[in-house]
């Protein structure tokens, strides 16, 4: 039997609200991408019948809209949690304002993406490159909500969608809004591909339990990393 003993400590990285946010978000994105793609490119599998007997396309759109509302409020909640959650979920992780965050981004590119050097990345939560990518996805979330509710608002008398009434005139008409909304969908799909791959990659290489951390919240972190984090002598303290 191969085994090894190394000084590891368990760290509670992702609090329950963050994990709930993550999985609701994941479900919404899967649902929105599938229904969205069908709305943009519906299969015409029914023939020789009358409209009276069917409503499947209306149902697909209904699922899309419900998922969109859920996605939107979940997103709002995550922004709120970025100001009240623990240190790993705070907003300052995601926006690289410090020089050391940019240095870590370069390090991650060298170590994990290009693999030209070998070095341990010591971030306990997200590394700086991952954080930056999440920040960009947040911007895409925002754009997707704006364009989506912008199109939805025209046929709704509800308060929330009406707030987005300015989006369509701002972008010059529904045609442009729909095109942007459709292109951004592919941003979600590409993100999901890379995201899932990188979870596998990090678990495979670092063995810090990153996959299960999004279920249980705990990660296994090397003791020296935690010590330096607690003494604020780590390479890139983010707080």
């Amino acid at each position: 039997m191969r085994s090894r003993t190394i000084p590891l400590r368990e760290v509670h990285v992702w609090e329950l609200p963050v994990r709930i946010y993550h999985w609701i978000n994941a479900l919404c994105i899967v649902s929105l991408c599938i229904t969205g793609y069908i709305i943009g490119n519906p299969p015409a599998f029914m023939k020789g019948t009358e409209a009276y007997f069917n409503f499947w396309f209306g149902t697909v759109r209904f699922i899309h809209f419900v998922s969109a509302f859920l996605f939107f409020f979940n997103f709002i909640f995550r922004i709120y949690w970025g100001f009240t959650g623990n240190e790993f979920s705070r907003w300052y992780n995601f926006i690289p304002l410090k020089r050391c965050q940019w240095k870590e981004i370069l390090d991650v590119i060298k170590v994990d993406v290009l693999q030209v050097t070998s070095k341990r990345i010591d971030s306990i939560g997200h590394n700086s490159l991952a954080s930056l990518v999440y920040f960009i996805t947040f911007l895409i979330f925002l754009l997707q909500c704006l364009t989506g509710f912008g199109m939805y608002g025209a046929m709704s008398s509800a308060f929330l969608p009406r707030l987005f009434g300015w989006v369509v005139p701002f972008l010059g008409g529904d045609m442009n809004v729909r095109q942007i909304h459709h292109l951004l969908m592919w941003g979600f799909i590409l993100f999901a591909l890379v995201h899932i791959y990188l979870v596998f990659y990090h678990d495979y290489i670092e063995r810090r339990g990153v996959t299960s951390s999004m279920i249980g919240g705990w990660k296994f972190i090397e003791e020296d990393v935690i010590e330096r984090h607690e003494n604020k002598t780590e390479e890139c303290p983010k707080g």
């Binding site: 599998f45 029914m46 409209a51 396309f57 209306g58 759109r61």
Partner: peptide, 11 residues
């Protein structure tokens, strides 16, 4: 519109 909601499309 009813045909749209029913998923009945001209191809």
């Amino acid at each position: 519109r009813a045909n749209f909601d029913a998923g009945l499309f001209v191809e």
